[in-house]
Amino acid sequence: MTVAVASGKGGTGKTTVAVALVLSYDRNSVLLDCDVEEPNAGFFLRSKSIKKEEFSVPVPVIDAAKCNLCGRCADFCSFNALALAGSKILVFRDLCHSCGGCSLICPQNAVMEEKNIIGEIHSAESDKIFFVEGTLKIGKAMSPPLIREVKKYGKGENLTVIDCPPGNSCPMITAVRGADYVVLVTEPTPFGRHDLSLAAETVSEMKIPLGVILNRYGSGYKGVEEFCEKRGIEIILKIDEDIKIAQAQSEGKTILDVCPEMKDKMCGIVDKIQKGLTK
């Protein structure tokens, strides 16, 4: 079963929940940190590094001996990664989405592929947790291919938890796609409600079942609960506002270190999701 932990806005406690889910689970599990722009889940796992690999995407390189400067590759490229300029074809690797269109369209077979390194993939393990994180290289704009690659590590285990990037655009969708269930973490504020409403709409559109964890509960604001009730979305857990939790986290400790009772609650959530899905 794959559970994606996401949130419309950042900083609501997404990583906290993702980490707590795998640490609480009694059997083997996988945690995938797909928040490749700011991967943070690794701070909270005391795991042993296994390997670090560079991750690259294929980008075109033009064989000048074969190229007859017809310019069809440049005309075709929807991302303007190729340009016919004077007596050569220029390639702008960082704009390339690796769709393969240029090599398919070239009548001269002059488009070859080479690697463009956009990030790295780091895997680590502890007792029962296999952990994989992707880190996007600074200055690289394209995170979805790296997210797709990290997700390939999440197959075959009892429980795979995905720590998703924040927001509702392509990186978040890429991370969430294919999950069996989505947990949306939010907080009881107007910002929290608004961002939750967008994220819930996105997940519903993808036809994936979802539930909400209301973090830092106790502000007195009822907007999130009202929203969930109106939409028929279940609030699967409320975590009380507690400065102890924030302090523990700032030091790399997890919520389980300060609130041991969370372990049972997290296990309960996994059980509940599992049962709900097999029903």
Binding site: F79, A81, A83, A85, L90, F92, L95
Partner: peptide, 15 residues
């Protein structure tokens, strides 16, 4: 309205 690479596209147009 190009999603990206508008400068590259315009430069080819001028060329």
């Amino acid at each position: 309205n190009a999603a990206q690479g508008a400068g590259i596209q315009s430069a080819q147009k001028i060329a």
